[in-house]
């Protein structure tokens, strides 16, 4: 075999000799290519994740406030205290609400773009979703602070329509209401929905593009009303995209701390708890334990999604 592959000319320099080596032993080239990125990700990223886990098993000395570098489960036990458990429950509820709402809102956009938009319109829809996805996160959050402020455009619009009382009535609802939209859970919810919506649209559109139009025609030929076609044909086939999108919206909401800090009530979300604990409070172990929670929730979420067969069609 090797005789047949003998080069037609003798090697001319180190470049040729190395090429010969790579040809005879492909794994050398592979190792050389992979080593730098793997070293970087392995040391910087995985190393840090291990450090995070490790820190979460440390605890803090209640009297001196110093970190005690001994492994213990004490810090995790603290997560179960009612005030901390509330933070986790609140964040998970918000993540679920945001995910559901973005699935509902994303569907018409994704379906129209996948099935009806052609040529220029298709490009316009793609860019129309991509640009908000990529444009500055902080600018988007800031825009909503302007919109939801008490003296801002929403209040102005409601009053202009003579519906100022309606807005006040909505804000008077306990728990989700508040002084103004920008200091209520409703406001937080709207901003989350806005910022993560494109993450739901794109995978949903991708899975809807794979639904054959003939199948929809067959469904209506067999006498299904549009609602039935949606329920029994489109929705099951679009489900992998919905699940993929929900993984983004759910996990991003779980880990965010800027949005509830800028727009929302003063009650904490997981991200805020992590941020304040590692910063001013100096309780890095508890902050680390809090940061492990979204990882665990996402692992359970992914396991359930896999159980439901969400990845089969991906």
């Amino acid at each position: 075999m090797s005789a047949a592959l003998e080069p037609a000319h003798p090697p001319r320099g180190p470049g040729d000799r190395l090429t010969g080596l790579f040809w005879r032993r492909p794994w050398v080239l592979l190792a050389l290519l992979l080593a730098p990125p793997l070293l970087w990700l392995g040391v910087v990223y995985v190393g840090s994740l291990v450090a995070l886990l490790w820190q979460s098993f440390y605890s803090i000395d209640e009297f001196s406030g110093m970190v005690v570098p001994e492994l213990t489960l004490k810090t995790y036990a603290e997560l179960l205290r009612p005030s901390n458990a509330d933070v986790i429950l609140r964040t998970a509820t918000m993540a679920a609400a945001v995910t559901l709402a973005s699935a509902v809102l994303a569907f018409p956009i994704a379906y129209y773009a996948a099935r009806y938009a052609k040529g220029r319109w298709k490009a316009a829809f793609y860019l129309g979703v991509m640009l908000p996805l990529w444009s500055s996160y902080l600018v988007k959050v800031y825009a909503w602070k302007l919109i939801l402020a008490k003296e801002g455009i929403v209040t102005w619009a409601f009053e202009g329509l003579g519906a100022g009382n309606l807005l006040n009535a909505v804000l008077a609802i306990p728990v989700i209401g508040g002084n103004s939209l920008s200091t209520s859970y409703m406001g937080t919810f709207l901003v989350f929905l806005y910022v993560w919506l494109p993450f739901m649209i794109l995978p949903m559109q991708a899975s809807l593009e794979r639904v054959p139009a003939t199948m929809l025609e067959a469904s209506s030929d067999l006498g299904a009303r549009p609602g039935q076609t949606f329920r029994h044909v489109i929705l099951p086939l679009a489900m992998p995209g919905v699940i993929a999108g929900s993984i983004f919206t759910f996990s991003l909401t779980l880990g965010d701390y800027i949005i509830p800090q800028i727009v929302g009530s003063s009650r904490l979300f997981i991200g805020q708890a992590v941020y304040t604990l590692q910063g001013t409070a100096g309780n890095i172990p508890l902050a680390a334990a809090f940061a492990v929670v979204p990882i665990l929730i996402m692992l359970v979420y992914l396991a359930v999604a896999r159980r439901l067969g969400a990845f089969d069609a991906l």
Partner: peptide, 10 residues
């Protein structure tokens, strides 16, 4: 993974 996990890990 959410940014906060990368951040807190580092």
């Amino acid at each position: 993974l959410p940014g906060i996990i990368t951040g807190m890990s580092l």
